[in-house]
Design a protein around this nucleic acid. Structure first.
Length: 927
DNA sequence: CGAATCCGTAACGTC
DNA sequence: GACGTTACGGATTCGA
């Protein structure tokens, strides 16, 4: 069969340039790319093709630029060392007798595509020589009426010549390649695809939905972040497909038959080879028969299969869209401007402010600038610490803060912000005690729509103002290239920071109106959330003293025991494996050892979780060892290794961060580190609490609500039996057992109490018979009997639960005792499992949320009481139903008298709120 | 191409 | 039920 070789010249030139070291000839001219291309060409000529063409891009715009002005906009200009090699390359190609094609208005790709299909139709065997993966769309197997079209990449020796090879490489058929590329996009050509969608994801979608049109039609059903990204990119996908489709119908002067390989010009070649120092090629030219494929000596070969993806040097980082200012933003650099703005702030009823810093951790961040806004569309940025070379002179931080202090610390001067707790920390650490922090848009949003929305400023601006804010990444970059805000150009910083203050103010106007329309919610916001802000800031700033040496000792011991467990596991398995990898463990247990896989992960794989391992622990020793190892690894990896790292070098203490708008139920959450999940249940876990200590002369005091959620259930359900039990101060689990099992309290067995306790917890969590059965280790029927029995004894509870479910279905939300609304997104989900989950949440949320409201109120009151005793006692932790204090030893009795009383009095329910407390030198002892 | 980074999953600590 | 953190492993993107 007659052969036609089509060479993608530009692609090779670029790839050879980047793949090969920057070689030069004796005269110092760059030759690396040339060398690569020459070797590639010699490789092809060995195959003695009858027809061949070297195709390069013609200068000027193409039809793709017409279609999409930004096409290849990111591509930097050709480096000079490469440009210098273009002419010599063409000279060599010509001297080799290879026809050169340059077609204006289209790209080399389109010329190759057109010729390839024409030749194939004429029965020729076509080889496209390129490093560009896009050509996979042209691959054809030989057919009765058409010749094959194959791809080769001589840089790495790969060859793609069949449907199977395309599928093997890309996971889709050749005719789906354009769809695949449209989804992926192409950074080099500046064709943005679906973010986070690479070859794997695109191939998966195409396998499911057949084609790009199929994917577009089913876009709504695709989950996760990439699903969102897909929907955001939907509009441009058809254009993408056009851009990546290689044309096969270009009107060309040449037909395949015109591309015959001509006689080479040996003299010209000899001169060129000599000039560029291609000794091997020269020898071959004169000696005639060289042996072996020259191409295989290229350094690129060793790296193995796959097409090289990048043709051009790295593109510029994406340029942010013009930072369009929605309002008038002023950079304050002079005293006159500052005076002017202070006057504006003084005159305003309220103003928004925001701080810019050089770190996320408010306990470490330094102030870089402040922004203010007094009316929508007007804001200023006051740079204080920009220190890049060439930064304009800025006002002195100390003087500016002194000038602002009266304003910021005046309680009657109302301020508002977005997540102002952060700013309160930063300013406090710079000597300003902010008072009069009156409104916070994050908390307004949280109270208005907990459970359904995000409450960060970017989301709020989009949702309530329809406005796209400037993203932090747009001014500071991201990843490894991110610069601290102090290095951001002041002009960019002004647009970003002033916008923050401006948007905060505008958002507040919108959100305040929404809150005013809902008096109950407004009360939750005004009476519970806002007063808590400075309290949380204080608790965080106080921090907790941690005995790092004790933790290190524990780490060392845990490490020894982990090693022992690992050795035993290796022994039992007969080989080493990664004990931390559920995947490897699953393969070992279920594939190699053939143990039964009784539990599945949500993803359908055999689970290796605790339940699954317990279930097979009687059949093999290994599961027990794994469980032992896991327990130790958890403690070490999460706590004993990590906590010492979290000690703040300035304060010597650990400062967690409480998220006030974190949990859908109104609870706080804690992170960096999370101090709300320090172990307590297991003996060895509990030891970690001994490392949370009081300094000499002080004690830790822990006060916790006893059974607060069950008490709230009693209150909400008004069930007489439950109310009575709490009123009598009974051991509630024992009392429940007595009711359910129909015997006097004194005769309840330990086992019966345990069962009752499990039922009580199950109720709080909205657990069904299935969950309870699991918890108790009994059959589902038996668990169902317990529940039925429970409801017959506590009919008020049963009615309350049904009312709550109904309320959730009717209104889409449930409420706490204080009127906080908790939205239930999936209460009407089509998916039954999702719906059931939402119903369980509906049961749980009012109890959990009311408990959260109560302890928040208590914290505010306790903090107010402590205001006069800040040197003697500090509130240092909150763990959902527990408050922990550090107090002078002689102040402890007073604390023990006051705090439990304040906590009990934080709400008036139909049952008493009992608070237990304990004292010790460490957190473990304080329980 | 390899390295860095992002993302989802599995597991598990607390209340 | 509500969280946050860890580790892994695969996918994506960066950077040269």
């Amino acid at each position: 069969m007659t052969k036609l070789v089509l060479i993608d010249g530009s692609s090779y030139l670029y790839r050879a340039f980047h793949a090969l070291p920057p070689l030069t000839n004796a005269a110092g001219e760059p030759t690396g790319a040339l060398f690569g291309v020459v070797n590639m060409l010699r490789g092809h000529l060995k195959e003695k093709p009858e027809h061949i063409a070297f195709v390069v891009d013609a200068p000027g715009k193409t039809f793709r630029d017409e279609m999409y002005p930004d096409y290849k906009a990111n591509r930097p200009p050709m480096p000079d060392e490469l440009r210098a090699q273009v002419e010599p390359m063409l000279e060599i190609v010509a001297a080799l007798g290879i026809p050169i094609l340059r077609e204006p208005g289209v790209e080399a790709d389109d010329v190759i595509g057109t010729l390839a299909l024409q030749a194939s139709a004429q029965g020729l065997a076509v080889t496209i020589s390129t490093g560009d993966k896009d050509f996979a769309q042209l691959v054809r197997q030989p057919a009765a009426d058409a010749g094959p079209v194959a791809l080769v990449n001589t840089m790495n020796g790969s060859r793609m010549d069949s449907d199977a090879a395309v599928i093997d490489k890309f996971g889709v058929r050749a005719d789906q390649i354009v769809d695949l590329l449209a989804l992926m996009g192409d950074a080099i050509d500046n064709v943005p695809g679906v973010e986070k969608c690479g070859p794997k994801t695109a191939a998966k979608w195409l396998a499911e939905h057949g084609s790009l049109d199929g994917v577009i039609a089913n876009a709504a059903a695709i989950k996760g972040k990439v699903g969102d990204n897909l929907r955001a990119a939907l509009a441009r996908l058809p254009l993408n497909r056009e851009l990546v489709t290689i044309k096969t119908d270009v009107a060309l002067a040449q037909a395949p038959a015109d591309l015959a390989l001509r006689e080479r010009d040996a003299d010209a070649l000899r001169g060129l080879y000599a000039r560029y120092g291609f000794n091997q090629a020269l020898k071959e030219l004169d000696g005639g028969a060289a042996t072996g494929a020259v191409a295989n000596r290229e350094p690129g070969v060793a790296r193995g299969g796959g097409f090289v993806a990048a043709a051009a040097p790295a593109s510029q980082p994406e340029i942010a869209p013009a930072l369009s200012a929605p309002g008038e933003y002023e950079t304050v650099l002079t005293e006159a401007q500052l005076t002017d703005w202070i006057a504006k702030l003084q005159a305003a009823d309220e103003f928004a402010f925001d701080s810019e810093t050089d770190a996320l951790d408010p306990m470490r961040a330094n102030l870089v600038g402040l922004s203010f806004s007094v009316e929508p569309g007007r804001a200023c940025y006051l740079p204080l610490g920009h220190d890049y070379p060439g930064a304009p002179a800025q006002l002195s931080r100390a003087q500016v803060l002194d000038a602002l202090r009266p304003l910021l610390s005046d309680p009657s001067k109302k301020k508002l912000g977005q997540h102002g707790k952060y700013d309160l920390h930063v300013l406090r650490r710079h000597g300003i005690d902010v008072r009069g922090y009156a409104d916070d848009t994050m908390l307004e949003s949280f109270v208005l729509s907990a459970g359904i929305a995000r409450h960060d400023m970017d989301s709020l601006a989009k949702r309530h103002l329809g406005y796209d804010t400037i993203k932090y990444e747009a001014v500071a970059g991201k990843g490894a290239k991110q610069i601290p805000f102090s290095q951001v150009a002041i002009d960019d910083a002004t647009r970003y920071a002033a916008e923050d203050a401006d948007i905060t103010l505008r958002l507040h106007r919108v959100l305040r109106a929404k809150l005013q329309a809902e008096p109950t919610l407004e009360a939750v916001y005004r009476d519970i959330e806002m007063p808590l802000v400075p309290v949380l800031a204080r608790v965080e700033a106080n921090g907790v003293l941690v005995d790092a040496d004790e933790l290190r000792r524990q780490s060392a011991e845990l490490g020894r025991r982990m090693l022992a467990a690992q050795q035993q596991a290796t022994e039992l398995a007969g080989r080493s494996f990664n004990l931390d990898s559920p995947k490897q463990l699953g393969a070992l247990l279920f594939d190699e050892l053939k143990l039964p896989a009784l539990v599945k992960t949500p993803g359908g794989a055999p689970s290796t979780n605790e339940e699954a391992l317990e279930a097979i622990a009687d059949q093999h020793e290994l599961p027990r060892i794994i469980l032992e190892y896991r327990g130790l690894a958890k403690l070490r990896g999460t706590y004993t290794d990590k906590l010492p790292e979290m000690v703040n070098p300035d304060t010597g203490r650990v400062h967690t961060s409480y998220h006030q708008a974190g949990a859908a139920t109104g609870r706080l959450s804690s992170s960096d580190p999370n101090l709300q999940n320090i172990p307590i249940r297991s003996e060895e876990g509990r030891r970690i609490r001994t490392a949370f200590i009081a300094p000499p002369g002080r004690k830790l005091v822990a006060c916790d609500y006893s059974q607060i959620e069950l008490r709230i259930m009693a209150h909400l359900s008004e069930d007489p039996a439950l109310l009575r039990a709490f009123a009598e101060g009974a051991d509630i689990h024992r009392a429940t057992a007595a009711e359910v099992f129909g015997k006097p309290i004194a005769e309840v067995s330990g086992n019966e109490r345990r069962a009752a306790k499990a039922i009580n917890f199950g109720l709080i969590y909205g657990m069904g018979a299935f969950g309870l059965a699991k918890q108790l280790g009994v059959g589902r029927g038996e668990a169902q009997d317990y529940i039925a029995l429970y409801f017959s004894r506590y009919p008020g509870v049963r009615d309350y639960m049904e009312r709550t479910r109904q309320q959730a279905r009717d209104a889409g939300f449930v409420e706490t005792v204080f009127g906080r609304r908790l939205a239930l997104d999936y209460i009407h989900a089509r998916n039954a499992a999702q719906r059931a989950g939402a119903e369980r949440a509906a049961i749980n949320a009012p109890m959990q949320g009311t408990a959260a409201d109560i302890i928040k109120r208590a914290m505010v009151q306790v903090d107010a009481w402590l205001a006069d005793n800040r040197e003697r006692a500090l509130m240092i932790l909150q763990v959902h139903d527990e408050l922990v204090f550090e107090a002078d030893a002689d102040f402890v009795p007073i604390l023990l008298e006051q705090v439990p009383a304040l906590m009990s009095g934080a709400a008036r329910l139909r049952v008493p709120l009992v608070v237990d407390s304990g004292v010790g030198d460490n957190w473990d002892e304080a329980h």
